[in-house]
């Protein structure tokens, strides 16, 4: 009985140590990847290439889901608000939920599934096929050549995607609210404008998505770089990227919301 307890405590210690050392390795990895001045002549084309892979290829899913989420919000919101005779507030309701919450969060979740997993799988595969190793032997640092452009592409494109998501969502709500449910177009926009605050809502939303972008891209590139270089290792790493970054995004979202909007 006593031995069992000792065993459990030892297991707990082992787990803690491995989590801490994992965090340490991930931080060192990030630091060594970021603390250098990139060479613009070679770095920029790589960055564009990754912006394409990470950003452009995620556009379709972001636009389609943004449109539908905006439309659903408008439909749901209308049926609730009309009960209070407050359907004029549909515009701000949709805009605020998109800008403050759904834009950053849903984009982050989609981004983790679409781009994060692809990053992990790609880097993991490069590791498994010794491409990273061979790069190192060619005196090219894979951190700088492979990781850095992907990291920055993720950091830049996710806030942009979140902005597109919110904008498309609001257009979708406009479509449903004005064209279908017959709200006045002028009221829709003007009430929205009087309620939505640029610094408080738009900028805070962008800051949120910037934080999410950092977390997701960091996890994605690190998981790929650190994976066990077998097909099973890659699939585990890819799953871990999606699960861990989604959970972290939702947790961080609460913290950020509490800091930004709770009074």
């Amino acid at each position: 009985m006593f031995n069992l307890l000792i065993d459990k405590i030892q297991q707990l210690g082992h787990k803690t140590l491995s989590i801490v050392s994992g965090l340490g390795r991930a931080s060192l990895f990030l630091l060594s990847a970021l603390f250098h001045i990139p060479n613009p002549r070679k770095g920029f084309p790589l960055f564009i290439q990754q912006l394409y892979a990470v950003g452009v290829l995620s556009l379709i899913i972001i636009i389609v889901s943004g449109l539908f989420i905006g439309m659903v919000l408008a439909l749901q919101g209308y049926t609730i608000l009309v009960g209070y005779g407050a359907e004029a507030s549909l515009g701000p309701m949709v805009a605020l939920s998109l800008l403050r919450e759904l834009g950053p969060v849903v984009t982050a979740l989609l981004f983790a599934g679409r781009a994060g997993s692809a990053l992990t799988a790609e880097i993991g595969l490069m590791k498994a096929t010794e491409q990273l190793s061979s790069m190192e032997m060619m005196a090219v640092d894979p951190l700088r050549r492979v990781i850095v452009p992907r990291f920055w592409a993720g950091m830049i494109s996710m806030p942009l995607l979140a902005a597109i998501f919110s904008a498309v969502g609001i257009l979708g709500a406009y479509l449903v609210g004005v064209d279908w449910l017959g709200l006045d177009s002028g009221t829709f926009w003007s009430v929205m404008q009087s309620e939505v605050n640029f610094r408080g809502d738009v900028v805070n939303g962008i800051i949120k998505s910037g934080v999410f972008a950092f977390v997701i891209t960091w996890i994605a590139v690190y998981k790929g770089y650190d994976c066990v270089p077998t097909s099973e290792g890659i699939s585990r790493a890819t799953t871990a990227t999606v699960v861990e970054s989604s959970l972290l995004v939702l947790g961080l979202d609460f913290v950020l919301t509490a800091l930004m909007f709770a009074r």
Binding site: Y52, A163, I170, Q193
Partner: peptide
């Protein structure tokens, strides 16, 4: 690729402009 990335960036700028001028006053 360059064309599509340019398109992506232009679209984001349009979205940001819409959010700052049309949605928020």
């Amino acid at each position: 690729i360059e064309l599509l990335v340019g398109f992506f960036v232009a679209l984001s700028i349009a979205a940001l402009l819409m959010l700052s001028y049309k949605v928020a006053q």
